[in-house]
Design a binder for these strands. Structure first.
Lengths: 348, 348
DNA sequence: TTGTAGGCGTTATCAA
DNA sequence: TTGATAACGCCTACAA
C-alpha cells in the first residue's frame, strides 16, 4: 500500500500548480472552469483528501477544541458533552475529551497536552484547587480562549457558562420547607468548588427565609461522588433530619443506599430534593423531586461562546447563567399534581 | 503577545543546533551533559513546549485515536468512553469523540473527518447500515487500524471487542422462565445491528430450551432509544405478556413509563429483565433484574487492542468477547437472596 | 556527540 | 487567473 496522495500528486496529475489545487480544494472563486474540472478529476482519480494536520500547521488553526470534565462517567456530563459536540460539529470543530477526576494534577497535565496539540480553545470544568503559577503563566502566554463550564474560577477571570445554582438550591430548600420539613440537612459538593458554594449559600439563605434553624452538623461536605453520599448518609441519619437537600445525583444514589441500610424510607422518614434530573427519575420510586439543570444547553452554549472567541470576538467576558427548574415529584412527602401541568416536559 | 517559542528559538538561545534541542526534548541518550543543561535552561527560560502538530506532521503519527459512538448521551456509552480514555491516556494517546446517532450519514462524515485529521486509529460502534463503497475503499486505502466496539460488522472483518450478548440474553430469558413467566416478550434493538441480532437469538433459543412458545407478536423491534421502548410498551401490553426482556436500559425506561400509563405494575403484572446495569438500579423500585455489561472494560480493552495495532502488532484479527453477568433483583416477582452473595459488587 | 539540510503537506506571499 | 517559493515547527538521514 502506497501512501495517501498529496496536493503535489494532484498537481502533477492535473498538470497545474499546487496553488491551483489548493484553490479548488478550498473552493476559492478565482479558478478557471477548465482547470477546476481537470483538478477535480485528478482529485477523484487519486482519491485525494487534504491532510488536516498539515493544514493546521500552516494555518495555525486546528479546528479542534479541548474539553476537560471531571468524569464523563458521572451521568451529569454526557449530556453536556453531547451539547458541545453538537455545537462544535455545526461549526466544523472536533472535540478532544479529557477526564480530570477533579484532580489538579490530571487537569494540569491535560491542559498542557491540549496546548501542545494546539487546540483552538478549551472548555474547562475546573477542579477545586488553584492552578500552579507555571500553568497559569502558560495559559496566559499561549493566549487561546478558555470558557469555564459549570464552575467559575475567579483567578482566571474569563467567560463562563453556568447554571444558577444559588437559585436552584434556594428553590429546593424552600420546597422542602413548604412540605413541612423542619430540620433540613445538606449534602454538599466540595466547598472549594464554586457551584458547591453557591448551592450552599442558597441552602443557607432559604433556611433563613423560611425561619428554619441552620444546624451545622446537618451539613456534610461530599465530593459529588456516590460514595461520599453514602458515607454522608450514614453519619447524617443518626441526627434525624426530616428533610435533605443533596447537591447532585450521584450523592443522592449513595444517600439512598445508606438510608436503605438503616431502614429509613423516603419520603416517610425524610424528604429529599436532589439536584440534576434524569428521565428515569420520574419512573422509579421514590419519585425524586429534583432541580433540573439544562445540561445539553450548558454544553452547547459554552461551545458557541468558545467558538465565537476563537473566531475573533473580543467583546468583554460574559457570564452566562442558565436557569434551573424545580421538578416536583413525590420525595418530599406529597405529590403535587401541578407537576403534571403544561410545564412538565414529556418523558419521551 | 508574541508567538510561542519554537525549537529554533531554543537552539539560538542555547547556542546549539535544532538537532540537539530535539534530542534533549525527546531525551535521547546521546547528548552531552553540558549541552543538555544549557538546552534545558533555554527551554525553561523561553517556556518552550514542542508543537505536537508539527511533530505529527513530521512523524506521521498523531497519538490521537478517533472514537465514534451512537450517542454519548445514552448512559451506556459514558463508561465505555471513560474506559478507553483511561487506557488511551496510559499510552499517551488522546481521544477525539464523535456521535453518529446511529446514522450512516453522520458516521461516514465522522470517519472522513477523522481520517483527514490523521488519527492513528479508530474505535467504532457501527451504525446499522452498510458503508457506501467509497468509504469502504477509503478505509482500505488509508489502512489505519479500526476496532469495532460492542457491535461487529462482517463486511469489514477486523478486530472487535464485544460482550457475549447471546449468552446474556439467554440468561435473562431463562431467569424469566424460572420465575414462572410463560408468555415472554422481547423488546429488541434494531435487528440490523449485530448485538441486537445476538440478543434476539439468545431470546429465541432460551425460549425453546425452556419449552416456551415463541410468539411473533410478542417481539417488537425498537431502536435502543427511550421513545421506542415507550411505544413498544403501549403496543405490547395489550397482548398481556407476563414477562418481558428488554434489550437495553433506555428502552426499559420508556417501557416502564408506558406500563405506568396503562396502570400496570412490575413485577405484579409483568416480570422484567433489562440489559445493562447501573448503580442506581439496586436502589430505586422496582429493583430491576439486569444483565450487567462490563462497560469500562469494554472501552479499555478496545483501546488497548487498537493501540497494539497502531504500534505494529500484525497478528491475526481477534474477537474479544466479554462476559455479562446476571444481577438478580426483584423485577421478576421474587427476591432471590443469592444476589446478596459474594458475587455482588458493593454499590459504592 | 553534534550539525546540516531536506522532508512532512498545506497555506500564503509575491510575481508573472 | 496562475505559478514559484517561502513559511509552519519538527524529525532525521547523512555528514562531520
Amino acid at each position: 500500500m502506497k501512501k495517501a496522495a498529496s496536493i503535489y500528486d494532484v498537481a502533477r496529475e492535473s498538470g497545474v500548480s499546487v496553488f491551483t489545487v489548493s484553490a479548488v480544494v478550498n473552493n476559492k472563486s478565482h479558478v478557471g472552469k477548465a482547470l477546476r474540472e481537470k483538478v477535480e478529476a485528478a482529485i477523484r482519480k487519486l482519491n485525494y483528501r487534504p491532510n488536516l494536520i498539515a493544514r493546521s500547521l500552516a494555518k495555525q488553526r486546528t479546528h479542534t477544541i479541548g474539553m476537560i470534565v471531571p468524569d464523563i462517567g458521572n451521568p451529569f456530563f454526557p449530556s453536556v458533552v453531547r451539547g458541545t459536540e453538537d455545537a462544535a460539529q455545526r461549526h466544523g470543530y472536533n472535540l478532544l475529551l479529557c477526564n480530570s477526576d477533579d484532580s489538579l494534577e490530571k487537569e494540569e497535565k491535560a491542559i498542557e497536552l491540549l496546548l501542545s496539540k494546539r487546540v483552538d480553545g478549551i472548555l474547562l470544568t475546573k477542579a477545586a484547587e488553584d492552578f500552579h503559577p507555571s500553568i497559569r503563566q502558560m495559559i496566559k502566554q499561549v493566549n487561546i480562549p478558555f470558557v469555564l463550564v459549570m464552575r467559575t474560577y475567579p483567578k482566571l477571570t474569563r467567560d463562563a457558562v453556568i447554571t444558577d445554582d444559588y437559585h436552584g438550591a434556594y428553590e429546593a430548600v424552600s420546597h422542602l420547607a413548604r412540605a413541612g420539613r423542619k430540620r433540613i440537612a445538606l449534602i454538599s459538593g466540595p466547598l472549594k468548588v464554586s457551584n458547591a458554594k453557591e448551592r450552599w449559600q442558597g441552602f443557607v439563605d432559604a433556611l433563613k427565609a423560611e425561619g428554619l434553624p441552620f444546624e451545622q452538623d446537618l451539613v456534610i461536605e461530599g465530593d459529588y461522588r456516590m460514595e461520599s453520599g453514602y458515607r454522608a448518609g450514614h453519619s447524617l441519619f443518626s441526627r434525624r433530619p426530616d428533610g435533605i437537600y443533596v447537591a447532585n445525583y450521584l450523592m443522592t444514589v449513595g444517600l439512598l443506599k445508606a438510608a436503605e441500610e438503616m431502614g429509613l424510607r423516603c419520603p416517610e422518614d425524610f424528604g429529599l430534593v436532589s439536584f440534576d434530573d434524569y428521565p428515569w427519575l420520574g419512573i422509579f420510586r421514590p419519585r425524586l423531586t429534583t432541580v433540573e439543570l439544562p445540561k445539553h444547553q450548558l454544553g452547547s452554549e459554552a461551545a458557541e461562546l468558545l467558538i465565537r472567541r476563537i473566531t475573533g470576538d473580543t467583546s468583554k467576558p460574559v457570564l452566562i447563567k442558565l436557569q434551573p427548574e424545580l421538578r416536583i415529584r413525590e420525595s418530599c412527602g406529597f405529590a403535587l399534581h401541578v407537576s403534571a401541568g403544561p410545564d412538565e416536559k414529556p418523558l419521551v
